[in-house]
Amino acid sequence: MRERIHSIDTLRAIAIFFITIAHVQPFRGFGTHGNLVFFVLDTIGQFDVPFFFVTSGFFLGAKLHTTSVKSIVRGTGRKLGSIFVFGKLVSVTAAVAVAAIVGSSVMSELSDALFNFSPASLLYYGDAQAVPLWFLSALFFSIVLVSGFVKFDKIRYLLPVAALFHVVGILSMNYPMVLDVPFRIRDALFFGFFYVALGYTIRTTEWTPKENHSHLYLGAVGFFLGAQLIEQYAIGYIIGENVLTQTVYLTEYTISTVLLVLAIFAYALSNPQLGKNTILPTVGRHALGIYLLHLPVFYLLHATKQFWIPVIGFPLPATLLWQLTITPLVYVLALGTYLAMARLGVIDPEGSHIPWLSRLRSRGGLSVRSRLSNE
């Protein structure tokens, strides 16, 4: 598996599309049938974030060893830290721009971004004023946890311990009558840790699903998609007693999600050329950029509708056309913006997302050395 696994890149492109759906929420509130469509789309897409965790763990397994733990954790922290800072800057910039467009207080937005959060919210949960960034924090701490088991040579306990925490998270989130944990559980310990550990275990045990079994794995994907829909509906509308015509019940992950993600990843490994001759693998390699930019793009689109709705002459967001096209539009605009930033040198997709900071430091260092040499 040293060659590029096109199927994983293809599924990244698909997974990030479902993440965009989850945040843009097309069809939600668009009548009973609209709620049903969004419920189905969002539930099907619950494999998305876990898939990215598993993928990270899978590639981590190729390079994380007892002697490389320190360098891996340091390098991961540096890279994810730069991405986090970039995402935070984009989020704050978008919030300020939206405030300016709609006429609300720009200073209030800046104040919230700079001061209105707790240290735990910023450093551990990663959602201070920029909710999607929680993934980066969860991924880093999940890698730290996995690295700890590797460092102390306790790999045989890794997946069981991670699974135990994840079961606690699942029960507390979806079945509080069984177990109710009095703190937040969409984090590294109860969510990301398990899926990163799962990917790491798949790689280090060298499990290679056979290509001639790919149709069986695809069948398993379909089966567990159905199981997830049933479980999600039961949690929200039978146990939770919600009414679909009034609300769309959403949760982060379920028991079925584990089996679905495992089936999807097995299918990807059994069919590594999936999507090779399409644009999807290329898009999938830039999934992170779409993740970081899709919400700012969406918020800006909504903020500017006061300008373009009078031009077109009717409320486009209230139409079926908008519901059908808004997610692909945000997806494409986010990808295009990210690629433009990369071309302009604002970011390095393969490295630091704040290379300009290094350049500023370099210039500052050169200036200091120049002054010292002149003296």
Rank of each mutant, 00 (worst) to 15 (best):
F115Y: 15
I202Y: 06
Y338E: 05
V54N: 10
D48A: 15
T337K: 00
A22H: 10
T43K: 11
Q228I: 08
R74F: 09
I354T: 15
T319W: 03
H286D: 15
I170Q: 11
A220Q: 09
K70P: 00
L216T: 12
T254V: 06
S367G: 01
T337E: 02
G336P: 03
V181E: 05
G351I: 00
G148A: 10
L274H: 08
N116T: 10
S56Q: 08
A94P: 00
A342V: 05
V368K: 10
V368E: 07
S256F: 11
V69W: 07
P26N: 12
T67Y: 11
E3S: 14
L250E: 12
R2V: 10
Q273S: 14
W322E: 07
P281V: 04
L295E: 09
L114H: 09
L274E: 07
G103E: 06
S118E: 10
I21F: 01
S71F: 04
N174K: 05
V181F: 14
Y157H: 08
S82V: 03
S142A: 15
K88N: 02
Y249H: 14
Q228V: 09
Y299M: 09
M341H: 02
I264G: 05
D127G: 12
I347E: 07
L295M: 09
G236N: 11
G192Y: 11
G199Y: 04
S118R: 11
H302A: 10
L189R: 10
T67H: 15
N116M: 10
P315A: 06
K63D: 03
M177Q: 12
K63Q: 13
L164H: 02
D153E: 14
V181C: 06
V73Q: 08
L198P: 07
D42R: 10
A94V: 07
R359L: 02
Q323E: 14
F117V: 02
D42F: 13
D112R: 15
V37H: 08
V98H: 02
F194S: 04
Y249M: 03
G29C: 03
I101S: 02
G31C: 01
Y331G: 04
V92P: 00
R371K: 12
R203V: 07
A303E: 03
R78Q: 08
F17P: 03
S370G: 15
I143C: 14
F183G: 01
R343I: 03
R74W: 06
G148N: 08
G126V: 12
R359P: 01
E3W: 12
